[in-house]
C-alpha cells in the first residue's frame, strides 16, 4: 500500500466509490440480461409447444 499522506481519505474514497458504482452497474446489467434471457427462453419454448397443442386440440 503506497503512503497516501494527508489526502489518503480523498484518494481511497475516490477508488472505493467508483469501484462500487462500476460493480453495481455491471451486476445490474448482468442480472437483467440473465433474467430476460431466461424468461424469453421459457416463452419461446411455450410458444413452440402451443401450435402443436392447438393442432391436437383442433384435430
Amino acid at each position: 500500500m503506497p503512503d497516501l499522506g494527508p489526502y489518503w481519505l480523498e484518494v481511497l474514497a475516490s477508488y472505493i466509490v467508483s469501484l462500487v458504482i462500476l460493480a453495481g452497474l455491471v451486476a445490474l446489467i448482468w442480472r437483467r440480461s440473465a433474467r430476460v434471457h431466461r424468461d424469453l427462453s421459457k416463452l419461446e419454448a411455450r410458444s413452440r409447444a402451443a401450435p402443436r397443442t392447438g393442432e391436437h386440440g383442433n384435430g
Binding site: 503506497p2 503512503d3 497516501l4 499522506g5 489526502y7 484518494v11 475516490s14
Partner: peptide
C-alpha cells in the same frame, strides 16, 4: 501529492 491518483478514474470516466 497523492491526489494525482484520482486522475486515473476521473479522466476516463
Amino acid at each position: 501529492g497523492s491526489t494525482v491518483r484520482i486522475v486515473f478514474i476521473h479522466v476516463p470516466a
